[in-house]
């Protein structure tokens, strides 16, 4: 155990250095997973992300979250072992989602049908060592809410368009397809790779348009279609510096912010006419 831990620490350092977007090295070691009872033999997952706090400042143009960790075996190693699979899910807070469909109506395209989903993820990325369908059964994935198809985005009760059978499913699959094109929903079946026998590494790219706030990171270890161990963490996307100042100003003192913007615009307008005056227009 001690030897394994030593090796892991060394490799952790390598991973932390390799993490392209890592700003603060110490964050990588911020949290170890919860201890499990040592007596029971079995696989245990230890993982972490490269950054727990991602600053969003004027230069923010997306970020890369590196997920890495190791798989330990407590107790005497079994003779034969089924292959291990790791799945990582990065998810932004859920929100109400309205999906609308355009139809050809008297010559122009108009939004006609709509279905409202409760608690749809505003960002959802799932990366794994293999295709999710091979790693575990639909039921197991659904139980752990892994995979976009398994995310239970229930329709709002009383939605007239959603009452017809098949409509909700159609709108859900279309929303997922659209979300994938917008890079809001991501699925990568070979996004996590094992380095050696028990170390793994994967990465998820967050687009610049990602909703800010807290992201949950869940890492799952599967063997023979069963969930063996899991690790949960959080990543915070927080506004900093000028970015934070303007956002807070606009939301907390919106009247003053509006007046400030108008005064700024008027000042630039006056400057413009002054410049024009210099040219003798």
């Amino acid at each position: 155990m001690v030897v394994i831990a030593g090796v892991r620490l060394g490799l952790f350092a390598v991973f932390a250095m390799g993490a392209a977007a890592a700003l603060t090295g110490h964050a990588a070691f911020a949290k170890e997973s919860d201890p499990v009872p040592a007596a029971k033999p079995g696989y245990r997952l230890e993982a972490d992300v490269s950054m727990h706090a991602i600053p969003v400042d004027v230069r923010f143009s997306g970020a890369r979250v590196v997920i890495f960790g190791s798989v330990d075996y407590t107790g005497p190693l079994p003779e034969v072992s089924a292959p291990l699979d790791v799945v990582a899910v990065v998810e932004a807070p859920r929100s109400e989602l309205t999906v609308r469909r355009k139809s050809w109506m008297s010559g122009i395209w108009i939004n006609t049908k709509s279905v409202v989903f409760e608690h749809a993820p505003t960002f959802y990325a799932v990366v794994a060592t293999r295709a999710l369908e091979i790693i575990a059964s639909k039921e197991v994935l659904l139980e752990n809410r892994i995979g976009l198809e398994q995310v239970p985005i229930a329709t709002v009760l009383g939605d007239p368009d959603a009452s017809k059978p098949g409509v909700t499913d159609e709108f859900r699959s279309q929303a997922i397809a659209l979300g994938m094109r917008q890079k809001r929903y991501v699925r990568e079946d070979d996004g996590i790779n094992f380095v050696g026998a028990n170390l793994f590494r994967g990465q998820i790219d967050l687009p610049a348009s990602i909703p800010l706030g807290q992201l949950s990171v869940n890492v799952y270890l599967f063997q023979s279609g069963k969930l063996v161990s899991r690790y949960d963490s959080k990543v915070n996307l927080q506004r900093e510096g000028v970015e934070n100042f303007i956002y807070e100003f606009a939301h907390r003192q919106s009247l003053l912010y509006g007046i400030f913007t108008v005064v700024l615009a008027a000042a630039i307008g006056v400057l413009g006419s002054f410049l024009a005056g210099l040219r003798g227009r």
Partner: peptide, 10 residues
């Protein structure tokens, strides 16, 4: 895209 998505309380 025939479909569009809007988040938030509509």
């Amino acid at each position: 895209d025939l479909y569009s998505m809007t988040f938030g309380r509509g």
